[in-house]
Nucleic acid binder design. Structure first.
Ligand SMILES: [Mn+2]
Ligand SMILES: [Mn+2]
Ligand SMILES: [Mn+2]
Ligand SMILES: [Mn+2]
Lengths: 152, 152
DNA sequence: GCCGATTTATAGCCATCGCTATACTTATTG
DNA sequence: CAATAAGTATAGCGATGGCTATAAATCGGC
């Protein structure tokens, strides 16, 4: 039997099957959009005190009904609330997710820059990469950055 | 007007808007599946001399009709051909894409390991990360790895 | 307070990517 | 060579995430 994600071995000793890896990538992708919306709504609230649908759509680079539909999914998943013709708000869960996502985003950009990726390229690629960075990889990135700071 | 991806500045001087970055991530995601299929079909042909639908589905971790549908898209995009109830074959374009994708995949895994990510975690995360690694980031990764090899 | 401008919601369309159930074709075996 | 097994294709469904067009609600200025 091929090693799988559901094996009871410590993560270091597991070697996920190729199918497991693809499945994981698909699962990540299913939540990536929610992560980006939630992070960005948090930014808007911090900057302007509110997050309007039109602003959300503009920042995401989508049409306004597309943003409205995404917000409906955020609400369905308990990450946001909204009052019609008023703004969009994050639930506690949503705000917590936004904070985690924002921190991870910054760490990924910093890691890319640290290994020599030009800043603009790092910002561009990080927007997609971040969602696939697991806890373990994030920890390694942070350790690497901390080490580099000590040696600078 | 905000700087955009379509500006005529050299990439180093551009700073893409947040919407540009999200749009880029969406575009990448639209081709990620094709990349994974093509790379994997290439692997199957190299290993077994042929790529059967059932094997493709198993390696991708999807149901067989899902693989059949993906193969239909590969054919539509000129990356593969197939003969019903026989195997799936890569076109020249498909084979070239497979090689690029495979090389990039290996570089991403190597980079992650080089900065301290455990090997199993690196393999897992790379499957999603790779698709968002641009030419510029890939070049930086290769330079970093070459430098590290010199210093070892 | 009304009216036009702005913002948001709704309707309806399309493509992609999953799935199960089932039909059809090819391979194998007695 | 007939019957069964295995592999593949097809049909049909649902969720997601885009879009345009249009209706409805709110806001601001007068
Ligand atoms: Mn992102
Ligand atoms: Mn982000
Ligand atoms: Mn991949
Ligand atoms: Mn890959």
């Amino acid at each position: 039997m091929a090693p799988s994600l559901s094996t009871n071995l410590p993560p270091e000793q597991q070697s996920a099957s190729q199918a497991d890896r693809f499945t994981r990538a698909r699962e990540v992708q299913a939540v990536a959009l929610l992560e980006d919306y939630v992070e960005m709504i948090g930014d808007l609230i911090a900057e302007h005190g509110e997050a309007r649908v039109a602003d959300i759509a503009e920042r995401m680079g989508v049409a306004q009904p597309t943003a409205t539909k995404a917000i409906a999914r955020l609400k369905r998943e308990g990450l946001a609330t909204s009052r019609p013709y008023r703004g969009v708000f994050l639930t506690d869960d949503g705000a917590a997710l936004a904070d985690r996502v924002r921190a991870r985003h910054r760490t990924v950009v910093a890691l890319l820059i640290a290994v020599g990726v030009p800043e603009t390229t790092a910002e561009l690629d990080a927007e997609g990469i971040e969602h696939h960075v697991s806890e373990g990889t994030l920890a390694a990135f942070e350790a690497y950055l901390a080490q580099q700071n000590r040696n600078k």
